[in-house]
Structures are given as C-alpha cells and as structure tokens.
Amino acid sequence: MIDRLHYISQSNAEIGHLEAIEQVLQAGGKWIQLRVKDQPENEVLSLAKAANDLCKKFASKLIINDFPRVTKAIEADGTHLGSNDINIVNARLIVGNNKIIGGTANTFADLQKRVEEGANYVGLGPYRFTSTKKNLSPILGLEGYKKIMDQVRNANINIPVIAIGGLTPEDLPELLKTGVYGLALSGILTNKNGTNLLIKQLYQELQNHPFPTS
C-alpha cells in the first residue's frame, strides 16, 4: 500500500541524510524516499543500507530515488524515477515485480506514460518552485493540479497521485479537493522543531479526507 505522506530526504550544512531520516521516523513518518543526487552509486549504496536499517527499525518503507540496482541490492521497498532516469520498464527488470516503482510527472501526458510503463504511483508537480525539483517545468500551482486531475478522472486512471514540489501543510486541504492521493515534503520536515506534531496533524488531515477506493 502506498502511504499518503512521503518524506524526501535532504541534507544541508547542519544535518545529513541519515540523521534527517531518523528524525522523521521518530516523529512518525512511515514512507521515506532517499534522494541523493550527484553522488556515485557506491556512496548511495552505503547510505541506502543504513537508511534501510533505520526504516526496518521503525516498520517504515524505504524508496530509493533513482538507482534501481541499489534498491535491488539492499532489498529496499522500491525505487522512484525522475523524468531523466532509467524508464520504469527497464527498472522493473532490475528490481522485480514485487517492488514499488514510482515515477515523476509534470503533465498529463507524462502521467499517462508512467501509467503505461507500470508505475505503482506518480509524483506530480512541482506545485511551486523548489530547488529539489528545479529541472521540472512548468510550475503547476493549484489550477494546474485541478486541470490534470480532471483529466485523470476523465481517463478513468486510478493510480495514486502524490503532489510534489515546494508544498506546505497549508496547501493540503485544497490539494486534496483536486483528487490527489497524498503529498511529499522535504525541507519543511528536515531538521525542524515540531516535526512530531506536524506529521501527526498531516496524517489526521489525510484521514479526514478518505481517498476513494474505486
């Protein structure tokens, strides 16, 4: 099952990926995406092994951004692929049929392609500009989500759509009205005070807005 609240790992001058992930796990996060850019695969593998141990300790899922071979090597729960990464069909050959594969989409056409390739969920965005999604365009905003999610419904597509890119908790109520399944957060959960309360509030908001099962 795809969780409705995703944490995309981030490091900065004060905190590394593993410490940031552990803080979110301790605060109640259940879905972690390890996103390490511009690093060689062997370094990502080392981080992924440690992150996987943390996620197992907290009974949470670990998704590796890109690097399907790392996903396979450490038996992570799945992999997430950006628009410039290996395609989902080829990644599936590496990780196997029992792993979760998510894909990024910026347009309805992107989303359709991800569905056709066999993605288990789609990260749609960005909602607003963010350095973690700076290569995606256009910025969708609320109106962009409304338009694309209307197209999703009209095409009878039922894949979970996760809103991504520069989101804040205040965006969630209106975004949920568009039909998205959940949201992904990064900087707002990284090394911040009050993360426990924020994650609890977000899960409560999601629970108050059940996602249709059919």
Score class of each variant (00 low, 15 high):
Asn135Leu: 12
Gly123Ile: 07
Ile64Cys: 11
Leu81Glu: 08
Lys133Glu: 04
Ala155Val: 05
Arg128Phe: 12
Leu111Asp: 01
Ile94Gly: 05
Asn154Cys: 06
Ala109Asn: 13
Pro173Val: 13
Asp110Asn: 15
Asn154Glu: 14
Ile164Tyr: 00
Pro173Leu: 13
Ile148Ala: 08
Lys99Ala: 15
Lys134Val: 04
Gly166Ala: 08
Asn90Gln: 13
Thr130His: 03
Asn135Thr: 11
Arg114Glu: 05
Arg128Asp: 10
Asn65Glu: 03
Val89Tyr: 11
Leu93Met: 04
Ile159Thr: 06
Gly166Thr: 09
Ile88Arg: 04
Asp77Phe: 11
Asn98Glu: 14
Asp110His: 13
Asn87Lys: 06
Thr79Leu: 04
Asn158Lys: 15
Thr130Pro: 06
Ala155Met: 08
Asn65Thr: 10
Asn154Ile: 02
Asp150Gln: 15
Gly141Leu: 04
Ala73Asn: 07
Val122Pro: 01
Gly78His: 03
Ile157Trp: 10
Ile86His: 09
Gly123Leu: 06
Ala91Phe: 09
Leu111Ser: 01
Glu170Tyr: 06
Ile148Thr: 02
Ala155Ser: 15
Pro169Glu: 14
Asp171Cys: 13
Ala109Thr: 13
Arg114Gly: 03
Lys146Ile: 15
Asn135Ile: 05
Thr107Val: 08
Gly125Met: 04
Thr168Trp: 07
Val115Arg: 10
Asn90Lys: 15
Met149Asn: 09
Lys72Gln: 15
Ala91Tyr: 09
Glu117Val: 07
Ile74Pro: 08
Arg69Met: 07
Glu170Trp: 02
Tyr121Lys: 00
Ser137Lys: 08
Phe108Asp: 01
